[in-house]
Design a binder for these strands. Structure first.
Length: 555
RNA sequence: GCGCCUGUAGCUCAGUGGAUAGAGCGUCUGCCUCCGGAGCAGAAGGUCGGGGGUUCGAGUCCCUCCAGGCGCACCA
């Protein structure tokens, strides 16, 4: 029996109580679905609901009286072993072991599909994340968005959404020229210009640019800067793509800001917004009246000197996403960008969209290392590449995915490396590799889920140990957890769930042997437990995949 | 000054109005004669930042104060 089926049974009980006049409520005053949840305390049964507490007052009765009545109506439902009324009026429901354990077979047969849902079916979404400037390597700050963004893509897809992962390359503007000048300065061995980029990577880029373009030293200054800029940009972008690849993060679209300028899309965007009636001229500049919406001041699109602002490119980029057919646009941004929320929503509204439905801005808090702020220009960066090399992609991804994005994260500098062995990712991965070890040993002992005669030897009623009720209950929750993580855009819920599942599995493993002892015959209890073992293996693998973390067969 | 985020165990953090507030790490005590000890069982450790309020019920919602982070450009 699944929680959905249980919920329906409760709805039916409520409806019958209304029908025979026991419950003095209109049928349409009943909740559309009854919420059931896993109680924290094991002795409170497999599932619990507070529906009696919520309805009693409206019906002019007491929660306990209503709960008692519902308990009576539910008692004879097939698959339900016991219904108890507890505390102020909770209904605690215990399922028959067989009814609950059937899930193990369902999961094994569903395989990688278990956990997927249609919760977000039909939604077409563009999810933009990282979008770091191509003027330096990705550092630990970007790494958080890389891990969260990619996991979110996977989770949204598992919930049925059609998602395109997109990286916006800020390859236009004065910063690129400063970048080129900085690289050129390294080539010439001169001082890094004011506001330029520093760090060993700039020197390395200089060496590579010089090696491939020895003629650069003879070019006029402006041509040399342009060449250094374009060559270093190409190298740096390739480096970013390469390191993301090694991190298991892949984008469907790499979108160049420069193409917006070169194609005239920025100019067109300003015109389109003007047609919508939200653009005006003042002081020689062109403004978007973002205060028509939720912004606290208007924003400049075209400066008095004729140059478009970064904001104008943002508007053009938004229109591009709209034109390319994405009703849903999710931006995953760092907290240092939260000042843009209102103006981005204003762009959406000014373009004729509904900001509440067409744009969603997720703000993630920044990562700090022992209080030190990380600055590219200061050169004190911890690079993603180094992190992966030190503690491994799995451990980095997992430890950044197990916290909500809006939690400010403080990582302990040197501790991080030695911390790797204590990372909860190994606890979860170990549980998975343990299920695989059981499978290997089962094969050696000729314990199989399906017998030679075609019967499967699966008897869920044999899963009657307390740790099995807990474990099966946890497996039941997985699809809801995935759907919830998708709807709330919170990948960390997957990680926390997996930690709980791994704990339940380890406890079960310590209490219930899957394989027979050497002098023992293979019986259905062993085969049935193997089904459960493999169901856990499948859910661990499915969950880890949603986080972009590997599920090793051996460690 | 204004806005957004955060404040929960020694540390890093879970907990989208429910019952006795949890996990990992750290500390202490047990458990490998049989499926992997990267594990299990147990102990210690909390005025959920302070104060009001709403509710049958508040770590969770509202108000207020305190503390920390981030942001308030014709920069990108």
């Amino acid at each position: 029996m699944t929680p959905d089926e249980l919920s329906e049974a409760l709805s039916a009980a409520l409806a019958s109580a209304v029908a025979d006049g026991t419950l003095a409520l209109d049928a349409d005053a009943l909740p559309s679905s009854v919420h059931v949840e896993r109680p924290k305390q094991r002795e409170h049964g497999d599932w619990a609901t507070n529906v009696a507490l919520q309805l009693a007052k409206k019906a002019g009765t007491t929660p306990r009286a209503l709960a008692e009545d519902l308990a009576g109506r539910l008692g004879s439902t097939p698959g339900i072993k016991a219904v108890d009324v507890a505390g102020p009026g909770f209904l605690n429901i215990t399922l028959e072991a067989g009814a609950a354990g059937e899930l193990a077979r369902t999961i094994v047969e569903a395989g990688a599909e278990y956990g997927r849902s249609d919760a977000l079916d039909g939604q077409v979404i563009d999810l933009e994340y990282i979008s770091a400037n191509p003027t330096g390597p990705l550092h630990i700050g970007h790494t958080r968005w890389a891990a969260l963004g990619d996991s979110l893509v996977r989770i949204l897809r598992a919930a049925g959404a059609d998602v395109t992962a997109e990286y916006y390359i800020n390859d236009a503007g004065a910063q690129m020229d400063r970048f080129g000048a900085s690289v050129l300065a390294q080539i010439h061995g001169t001082e890094v210009p004011e506001g330029g980029y520093r760090g060993e990577y700039v020197a390395e880029l200089g060496r590579q640019v010089l090696a491939a373009n020895p003629q650069i030293v003879d070019l006029p200054e402006d041509e040399a800067v342009a060449l250094a800029r374009d060559e270093a940009y190409r190298l740096q972008l390739a480096e970013i793509r390469d390191v993301l690849d090694s991190f298991g993060v892949h984008f469907d679209v790499w979108f160049s800001e420069r193409t917006l300028h070169d194609s005239g899309a920025v100019t067109t965007a300003v015109e389109r917004l003007r047609e919508q009636g939200h653009v005006y001229d003042d002081g020689g500049a062109v403004w978007l009246r973002t205060t028509d919406f939720t912004d606290d001041k208007d924003r400049v699109l075209i400066r008095a000197n004729g140059e478009p602002t970064y904001f104008a490119a943002d508007a053009a980029y938004y229109l591009s996403k709209k034109d390319r057919g994405f009703p849903g646009k999710i931006y995953l941004l760092g907290a240092d960008h939260h000042g843009y929320i209102n103006r981005l929503k204003a762009i959406s509204a000014a373009a004729g969209d509904d900001p509440a439905a067409n744009i969603e801005i997720l703000i993630g808090q920044l990562v700090s290392v022992q209080g030190a702020k990380l600055s590219k220009r200061a050169g004190n960066i911890i690079e993603l590449r180094d992190l992966v090399e030190w503690i491994g992609a799995d451990a980095v991804r997992y430890s950044l995915s197990r916290y909500p994005a809006d939690t400010p994260l403080e990582l302990a500098g040197e501790e991080m490396i030695k911390q790797s062995n204590d990372n909860p990712v190994f606890y979860v991965q170990y549980a998975h590799s343990r299920t695989c070890a059981v499978d290997r040993n089962a094969a050696d002992r000729a314990v199989r889920r399906v017998l030679d005669d075609g019967t499967d030897g699966f008897d869920p009623a044999l899963l009657d140990h307390p740790t099995e009720a807990v474990l099966v209950g946890r497996l039941t929750e997985f699809p809801r957890i995935v759907a919830q993580a998708a709807e709330l855009r919170e990948p960390h819920r997957i990680a926390r769930y997996l930690e709980g599942l791994a704990a339940d599995y380890h406890k079960w493993y310590a209490e219930c042997r899957v394989l027979p002892y050497p002098d023992e015959e293979v019986q259905d209890v062993h085969r049935t437990r193997l089904w459960l073992n493999d169901a856990v293996r499948q859910v661990l693998a499915n969950g880890l995949d949603l986080l972009g973390v590997s599920a090793p067969e051996r460690m």
